[in-house]
Simulated assay, not measured.
Amino acid sequence: MKQLILTGLLLTTLFAAKTAQDPNTLTAQEKKEGWKLLFDGKTTNGWRGAYSDKFPAKGWTVNNGMISIQKTDGSESQNFGDIVTDGEYSDFELVFDFKLTEGANSGVKYFVVEHSPKPKGSAFGLEFQVLDDDKHPDAKLGRNGNRTVGSLYDLIPASGKKANPIGEWNTGRVVSKGQHVEHWLNGNKVVEYERGSEKFRELVAMSKYKAPEYNANGRFGEAPKGHILLQDHGDQVYFRNIKIRTL
């Protein structure tokens, strides 16, 4: 009888742990810490198209607890378009799961501001790169690997990263507090920098973001607040467990 009780308690504990980790849910502790879901796993509530007041009519789908973008021709934000959060954030901790298909390219941007005129490609913002490093050519562009998965796109390469194989879930995390920003990938800190610092501005000056259009409404990447963005780069990518808390 004692063994049965212990087995029952173990199963209950394991079930509780699994339930706490179910996609697109928050534990009691997370709610206490101020976490909020940005994606409920069932609807597109809280999201809209970039530079639009509506969610894209095509391309983005919600199914089986995932939000995904349909594959097209690999071009940046030219088919169905990026999506952004209704809300804007400054000091925050953002967590998201992503799963790539072979050769896929996407990104999660933050501090996104929709300045006029609308750019030809993706809305401007700092980007946590989401990429198949082995199969997508962008991994070999830029400098020193700063366009590989987990990197601050075109600025700082991710170091010490451990990305899971294509078709498996990865967990990204962005922490922004004051000027300090960190990228984490699968529990490892892979990028760390200070927004607006002399070093940051030097990196911008060596990147594609030095172009005038990126700085016409203030220095690139230094907006005081902005939206979170999921990128349509013409490849199929899946997201889930998108949650945020203000710091």
Score class of each variant (00 low, 15 high):
Asp86Trp: 04
Gly59Ser: 05
Val175Ala: 05
Ser151Ile: 00
Val190His: 14
Val112Pro: 00
Ala205Lys: 15
Gly160Ile: 05
Pro119Met: 14
Arg147Trp: 00
Ser106Thr: 07
Glu114Met: 12
Ile242Glu: 01
Ala28Ser: 11
Arg48Val: 09
Asn63Met: 05
Ala205Asn: 15
Lys36Leu: 02
Asp134Ser: 15
Leu9Ser: 02
Gly41Phe: 00
Gly125Ala: 07
Lys118Tyr: 04
Gly221Arg: 09
Lys135Gly: 10
Gly121Asn: 13
Thr85Tyr: 08
Leu10Met: 12
Met206Phe: 07
Ala216Ile: 02
Gly234Thr: 05
Gly59Met: 10
Phe111Thr: 11
Asp40Ser: 07
Phe124Tyr: 14
Leu141Thr: 15
Arg240Phe: 08
Val113Cys: 06
Val112Lys: 11
Phe200Glu: 10
Gly145Ala: 00
Thr19Met: 07
Pro23Asn: 13
Gly145Glu: 00
Ser68Arg: 11
Ile228Ala: 10
Val237Leu: 11
Ser151Tyr: 03
Asp53Gln: 10
Asp40Met: 01
Leu94Ala: 14
Lys2Cys: 05
Lys32Phe: 06
His227Lys: 15
Ile166Glu: 11
Lys210Gln: 15
Gln179Phe: 03
Lys99Trp: 10
Val191Phe: 06
Ala50Phe: 02
Ala104Phe: 09
Lys189Cys: 09
Thr43Met: 10
Ala205Tyr: 05
Phe128Lys: 02
Ala17Gln: 10
Ala57Met: 07
Gly150Asp: 01
Met66His: 07
Ser197Trp: 15
Arg219Lys: 14
Asp22Leu: 06
Phe80Met: 10
Lys58Asp: 11
Thr7Val: 13
Gln78Ile: 01
Leu247Pro: 03
Tyr51Arg: 06
Gly8Lys: 03
Ile228Met: 02
Gly121Val: 02
Ile67Pro: 04
Gly103Gln: 14
Gln21Gly: 02
Asp132Arg: 12
Lys120Ser: 15
Gly218Ala: 01
Ala211Ser: 12
Phe92Gly: 07
Tyr153His: 14
Ala50Gly: 13
Ala104Trp: 08
Lys199Tyr: 09
Asp73Thr: 11
Arg143Thr: 13
Thr171Asp: 07
Pro224Ala: 06
Thr246Gly: 11
Thr7Gly: 03
Ile83Val: 15
Leu37Ser: 04
Gly103Trp: 05
Thr25Gln: 12
Gly234Cys: 01
Asp154His: 00
Gly74Trp: 09
Asp232Val: 03
Asp40Lys: 03
Asn24Val: 01
Pro119Arg: 10
Gln129Arg: 04
Asp232Ser: 13
Arg143Gln: 13
Thr61Ile: 09
Asp235Ser: 11
Thr13Gln: 02
Lys18Val: 08
Val84Pro: 00
Ile166Cys: 13
Ala57Gly: 08
Tyr51Asn: 05
Tyr214Lys: 09
Gln70Arg: 09
Leu4Asn: 01
Val149Thr: 03
Arg219Tyr: 15
Thr72Trp: 11
Asn45Ala: 14
Trp184Arg: 09
Val130Tyr: 08
Ser68Lys: 12
Gln21Phe: 06
Lys140Gly: 04
Leu185Ala: 12
Asn186Lys: 11
Gly196Leu: 14
Pro157Leu: 01
Asp97Ala: 05
Leu185Thr: 12
Trp60Pro: 13
Asn144Pro: 08
Glu213Cys: 01
Phe124Gly: 04
Asp154Tyr: 04
Phe124Ala: 12
Glu194Leu: 09
Leu230Ser: 00
Thr85Gly: 08
Lys189Thr: 07
Val95Ala: 08
Ser197Gly: 14
Thr246Asp: 15
Lys58Pro: 02
Gly74Arg: 05
Tyr214Asp: 00
Gly34Asn: 02
